[in-house]
Design a binder for these strands. Sequence first.
RNA 1: GCCGAUGUAGCUCAAUGGUAGAGCACAGCUUUCGUAAAGCUGAGGUUGUGGGUUCGACUCCCACCAUCGGCUCCA
Length: 638
Amino acid sequence: MARITLPDGSTLEAADGTTAGQLAEQIGPGLAKAAVAAKVNGKLVDLSTPLDGEVAVQIITTRDDEGLEVMRHSCAHIMAEAICSIWPETKLVYGPTVEDGFYYDVDLDESVRPSDFERIEEKMSEIIDADTPFVRKEMNRADALEKLAGDKYKTDNITHADGDIISFYSHGDGFEDLCRGPHVPSTGKVGSPRVMSVAGAYWHGDPTQKMLQRIYGTAWPTKRDLDDYLQRLDEAKKRDHRVLGKQLDLFSFNEAGPGFAFVHHKGMIIWNAIVDFWRGVHDRYGYEEIRTPIILNEELWHRSGHWDNYKENMYFTNFDDTDFAIKPMNCPGGCLVYKTRQHSYREFPMRVAELGLVHRHEASGVMHGLFRVRQFTQDDAHIFCTPDQIEAEIIGVIELTFEIYQAFGFEDFHIELSTKPEKHIGSDEIWETATNALEDALKQKEIEYKINEGDGAFYGPKIDFHIRDCLKRSWQLGTIQLDFSMPERFGLEYTDKDNIEKTPVMIHRAVLGSFERFIGILIEHYGANFPLWLSPEQVRILPISEKSNDYAGQVERRLKDSHLRCSIDSSGEKIGAKIAKAHAEKLPYMLVVGPREAQAGTVNVRIHGIKENKTIKIDEFLTIAKCIIAEKKIDLAL
RNA sequence: GCCGAUGUAGCUCAAUGGUAGAGCACAGCUUUCGUAAAGCUGAGGUUGUGGGUUCGACUCCCACCAUCGGCUCCA
């Protein structure tokens, strides 16, 4: 007899060898129908798994994330069979699930094209309609290796597998694949799939290895879920900062400078609003601000260690028979400023900010709108301090960072700690001290963090800040990097209490990371419906007809006197057309004015996205708008 | 950098080897209008760049450039 405990705590008895699937049937036909796998004593298994003894069992359906993953993984097998049936010479490599779907890497000389997707999907439908069972077969490692002799990919997969028991899954007409499982009971249980895209991917992610073809797919429990997903993708596409940036005249790119953004007037208004805010906060946190040159002698970059560790990403130039480098980072320039005079411990901590324009030669295939460019402005700062000030300084930076993120409505963020990379300067001892200092600060603030081994900057370990936007996508923004090496290399000094010259500690940090990238993130986060304080044009005045243009002019003057960014739509269009146009341009406020308003000294306010409108005095509107700007409110309601 | 796809008017897209077209936007005229797009007329293109095949190329071939989707890398 198997004694089974269910998730609700109830217990059941069943004959030994009863399968998890049969148990589901015993509980209810609805559950049995929805079941795709089971969890036995916390381990995810097939429904065909027999139950013995005292076990805790949970039936997994596609309502569970794990069930959805099982379903998608099974779907990957089905897609693999479809691909193999179309291209029999296909060698299968690896087919895991990813967020919202799955992929399968294949080694196939002929290119799979988007035009082939329909064919693949048709074949998948046949396999799904046939509803044949997934069958698990186990053998020991040696037998499995023998069975797969000559298949370098699957043999390699076995060497990465744990345990001595290797499993294979088959379905349909003899399609079989090495796989840990579990899988749905039969091919009819994989819901609504779709082949999404194809791309190249290196075997093991290693550029020296063969480029495989990675075919991406997705699968959802029902057709409706699939449609919702496709709709969601469509929504995300509408928020694409590259599309909105062009549409709203914020920035552009040109073939003349791939990866170099042209920021337009409206983009600069957003940029400058962020800079103003940023300066205010930094001033309050005790920062000074400097600006260092973009082009500096190449020798400087030998000394800093960039030549040995960062040369591949740097631009160089030569004039007057001298070699120069275009700065990829601001720190060496900051060190030169530090060295222009002597320093005392009494000045510390010295927080020196710089909105530094840096150039990094990124590989041609990685550029992506404003998110990945070759020239960008870092909101950088270097803090010079004594070793015993490190922890307090790190904590101060964390507090400042959180304050800035919250102003933009980012509430969901997490932190990662990156440790010593292969390419680095400085001794292991220094690295350990620095890494411990960062960890201590995080522990002190009781902040949870994830560790990324070997992901630090070449001169020191770092803390990275990641935020999630409104579509739950994660972005890296800020970073704090602790550096004991560069001050040493540049011979930085300060006179300590005991009258001895010592080397200061340097903390590199950025909060927004890059202005370009941050503005790109903001565009997608807000869907270009910016809060009033960031909106390039805050108010548009819409006269009913040309007869009201004079009054519109008076209103405009009042708004401009209050430093509101506004314009008048004096085109010959009808009011409906003016509203539609302002709406398309994502204007926060539209002020409709006609003879009635002119008579009463009022404006009729219409808020972006809201059909209702409200007539109020100009003064009242000004007071409210100024308050919404000052408080950086996201809600535009009057 | 690697694999694949794409590149036609300011924008979104048609035109499958035989004179390059539409909608929106733009300009002019008419309309002077009360809350999500009035009407008419017009202008606008060396089809990414350079070569090749052909009587003839947006269309077929080659190279390059850029962009897009990924991989590696990364703020």
